[in-house]
Nucleic acid binder design. Structure first.
Lengths: 205, 205
DNA sequence: TCACTATGTTTATGATGTTAACATGAATGC
DNA sequence: GCATTCATGTTAACATCATAAACATAGTGA
């Protein structure tokens, strides 16, 4: 697989030697932006500060992103891919049944707690993406993957429609719990998360 | 009850006659800010724009709020009070049992859908309030009230500890569902909300 | 070699939050 | 009743931000 516009495989974030051109500023910007955001609680990112970190002029980023929102969208997409992959992997490594279901929810919440700004950025941005813009498809795909991961540990002995409702229930539950924790309303506690998630009764769909 | 610093009873938002002083700029700012925010999807508020609406200079607001965050905190507090009151009223007017429980959840989600920016502002701000600041107590009180409203329709035949878990479950569920709707991930549907909320099984605490 | 394009740079613009210095209305003390 | 003081406005100024415009250079392909 060769590097496409969305890959973020670069050697370093800052300009290497004194070369005039940067190499792959777009990828470097995404990588540096991801790192910067992931060190914060809130997804605040300044174009100028980022450019400074990259050793590049403030306006250079406009050669790769039409505006700040586009950069944030790219970061949100990258974050969403990471979350989806993380969730899918968890679904695979965890057994089924109610225990596995609780574990999946815990995984979602834990990821959110470990990447608060990224989590916020994802949901901040996906609601705003202009569907005519660069890659709404990728966003949709990534979310589809996330939902699939969530639905993976759903009980099989209920109808598809019930499964959809149950999946929404599960997603709402862990998402709400994660948000309440990120917003400082609830203290993170793995046991509590499991207990709360397992209160769902699938026979009530 | 006479007007204290947090009341918002004013005659009009803009300056009345040519008087030099405004009357009650603090209250007017909160009222105008609330209205402005409630007309939006996201809690973006510019100090200068707000001052313009009030017919007042941009820096005038600094006589009543140390900075923008303090104004936003005041707005969030007002919003939280409204949400809490709304929720408490719903708890009172709705019967108990599972049906009442579902109705309470629906009330929370519907309020969020009707006041998206306010909802976001509340949870944006309460996580950031400096506990040494103006009125952390009021914030805490207001949230306590909200939680009480949520817990009001909790089943009585379970232990207090189970009730706490169940309340957190309920809060997480409706909050997450509301947020997913606000973020455009789920379409609002009253029946669906009720169905999702009613999947909770309190015997599993 | 010569144009062309991609990707940088510098400079400039208008918006924002915030501070400082100043002005005036209303309230207070004599 | 008058002078002083305090609360609450004002204007001017500053730093920062996103962004646009004009210019410059590095790499590419004819």
């Amino acid at each position: 697989m060769n590097a496409n516009a969305n890959s973020v495989n670069i050697k370093s974030n800052v300009r290497e030697s004194g070369g005039y051109h940067h190499g792959d500023l777009r990828a470097a910007a995404i990588a540096a932006g991801m790192q910067k955001i992931d060190e914060q609680d809130h997804p605040d990112l300044g174009l100028r500060a980022l450019a400074r970190d990259l050793g590049v002029s403030a306006t250079a980023l406009y050669r790769h992103f039409p505006n700040k929102d586009a950069l944030l969208d790219a970061l949100a997409l990258e974050g969403l891919n990471r979350l989806g992959a993380h969730q899918a992997q968890a679904a695979q490594s965890v057994g089924g049944g109610r225990e596995g279901f609780g574990e999946m929810g815990l995984t979602y919440v834990r990821w959110a707690v470990e990447h608060p700004a990224l989590m916020r950025l994802i949901y901040d941005r996906v609601g705003k993406v202009d569907l005519a813009a660069t890659n709404p498809t990728k966003m949709g795909e990534a979310f589809f993957q996330l939902r699939a991961g969530i639905a993976a540990t759903m009980p099989k002995d209920i109808s598809p429609e019930q499964q959809a409702t149950a999946a929404l229930h599960a997603w709402s539950l862990v998402h709400g719990l994660a948000m309440l924790i990120l917003d400082g309303q609830v203290e993170y506690d793995a046991d509590l998360v499991r207990k709360v998630v397992l209160m769902t009764d699938f026979t009530n769909c």
